[in-house]
Design a binder for these strands. Structure first.
Lengths: 344, 344
DNA sequence: TTGTAAGCGTTATCAT
DNA sequence: ATGATAACGCTTACAA
């Protein structure tokens, strides 16, 4: 069943049917009604590929996600997906977890292969952006919550994210002001080159400001997983009891840390304070509730997709936005308890 | 840059280029190398639409999700997405949260519009499947973790899920055997017609077996959300202290219930026992850990996508699979404490 | 082993 | 207001 069949049944030419299909005004109402009825009756759906071939517009928006296991992104994908659908476009979702290519290559290939009209990257490392990196594609690109370092090529793409360094700095400072001197930080991976690198930097900066010493031993690795974080923390607690606070750079890891503390018969807050990062709702409902750096994820999602459509429709040019985070103070972080030195 | 340009540059006919593109064997190695080099140098990517138009194979797999906010599905989408990519197909993800159409109509429209080669539905209600419901499409369909009622048309689609009634029955029985007599159940919505309906049925069945009374007052509504569950439970605890256990039909709601109990100065396990449903890892790491009905979500995801490809490749026919759940016993459910009646 | 040309289902241009 | 037809970029007989 194609446009020709419909035309034949209706006793009109294919162009008339096409006009009806595309809501052109120059069709007699009567004819339009008749054709519409036939289309409906025969369950005809236009062939998208033929349309795209002709119009050169796939109406496909790509969403490239690094680390989909991150529940933080799931919700954003949801918001983005709904908006894409609303705009009459199709979402093509591709994960990028197990690819060891440069994220850049994956992105460029993705756009070309799927002939995307635009793409949003959720997470990932784009540390080697060059001035001409995006010259070979003309689909607008929005990098959301990704790690970039270079200032090159900034006029060729947009980015939306938070100030990771600053957020980590404030979180750490908050702990310091509570009297903590021996603070550990839990990163995702050893030598994390992504956002973890910036958060570590903010952490160190706060420490430096107060002349507190920082050693590699204060770095814990949690693989961004609850389970890993749990094991790492348990091991730590058996060896180094002089730590009074742990700053985990994801809420998922903060949960693992919390449970490890509990299972080690220590009291969260009293014995060891915790701060997480992300602002997932479990941090609020955990027992005890967990202090966290809340990212404005709904806003990030909405801005990303709206801005992308503005770019597509050429209503706006590329821009780079840093949104504010909020330090949500909860039960897991308390003033450090004064340890009376019996020998003193 | 199209196939003609490449052919011109290489000094060959378009069909030779096409043969190279499609890995046909009947091309001289020398010619192949030359063409491959030109393709690479000129960054040429074949136009998918033209290809599809000709071959009538989009290589698109649809994933239609109801309730993507459910973190339970996110992980499954991840597994499914990776497999689709691995098979050289593209995943088209569509959410179905705010659609009030029948899920059936959405599904059929989705397949036709995107010309899908196959589709997996994650969640949703397909209670009105007729014998000929799927006759108008020829893409194989796998319904995963969805609610079906009718036995009609079973040879036209596949399904993979768990036995919701049985699972709920066993969970309830476990509570009863711990001595609980006044058990509340928390459903997603009032008059839940989906899986909630079956879980409620299993719940009632267990109660009936022990001649325990069931009243509408034992039904709580939590909207499948942590927050809602929290509020509902808090209200309940202010009014009805004769309940000794709550069975929440999702882990997310179980967390809300747990926190509400804690905030009401009651002890989970001692005062009120909790059972959740799904087997998300937070149930293990919550404080205290929460008993739950664990669904084999990885297995469900893997089976769904593998079976779909078997159907596409006609290696197998439609089938209906019920997987086993596991009741994971944890700290949140304990023997009911004996209440000494002081007046007795 | 390679080239020529028809045809996939649309849309858009140009007549009428 | 409507119809005939070229063109989009590819694959695949068929011919050479």
């Amino acid at each position: 069943m194609n446009i020709k069949d419909i035309a034949k049944i209706a006793g009109v030419g294919v162009s008339t049917v096409s006009r009806v299909l595309n809501n052109h005004s120059d069709v007699k109402d009567e004819t339009r009604e008749k054709i519409l009825k036939i289309i409906k009756d025969s369950n005809y759906v236009p062939n998208n590929s033929a349309r795209i071939l002709k119009q050169n517009n796939t109406k496909n928006i790509g969403v490239l996600v690094k680390g989909v296991f991150n529940p933080f992104f799931s919700e954003m994908i949801n918001i983005i997906g709904n908006k894409i659908h609303e705009y009459g476009y199709t979402m093509v979702l591709q994960q990028n977890d197990y690819t060891f290519d440069e994220d850049m290559d994956t992105l460029l290939g993705f756009i070309k292969e799927k002939r995307l009209q635009g793409v949003i990257c959720l997470g990932g490392n784009f540390i080697d952006i060059k001035e001409d990196s995006f010259d070979s594609v003309d689909a607008p690109i929005v990098l959301t919550s990704v790690n970039t370092i270079s200032d090159l090529g900034k006029s060729k793409y947009s980015s939306i994210g938070i100030d990771n360094k600053k957020s980590a700095y404030h979180a750490t400072k908050y702990l310091i002001n509570l009297g903590h001197k021996n603070i550990a930080i839990m990163l995702g991976e050893k030598d994390d080159l992504g956002i973890g690198w910036w958060r570590l930097k903010g952490f160190k900066e706060a420490l430096l400001e107060y002349n507190y010493n920082f050693s590699e031993e204060h770095i814990l690795i949690g693989n961004y997983e609850v389970e890993s974080a749990y094991k790492t923390t348990k091991n730590l607690l058996m060896e180094k009891p002089d730590i009074s606070a742990i700053f985990a750079i994801s809420d998922a890891m903060a949960i693992g840390v919390a449970k490890a503390i509990i299972d080690s018969d220590l009291k969260i807050g009293q014995d060891i304070s915790i701060i997480g990062f992300d602002g997932m709702n479990i941090s609020e409902f955990y027992n005890p509730s967990i202090t966290t750096v809340k990212q404005p994820k709904e806003l990030m999602a909405v801005m990303s997709i709206n801005h992308l459509f503005d770019l597509i429709n050429k209503k706006e040019g590329h821009k780079h936005i840093l949104l504010d985070t909020e330090l949500v103070k909860r039960e897991s972080s308390k003033e450090v308890k004064i340890v009376e030195n019996i020998l003193a």
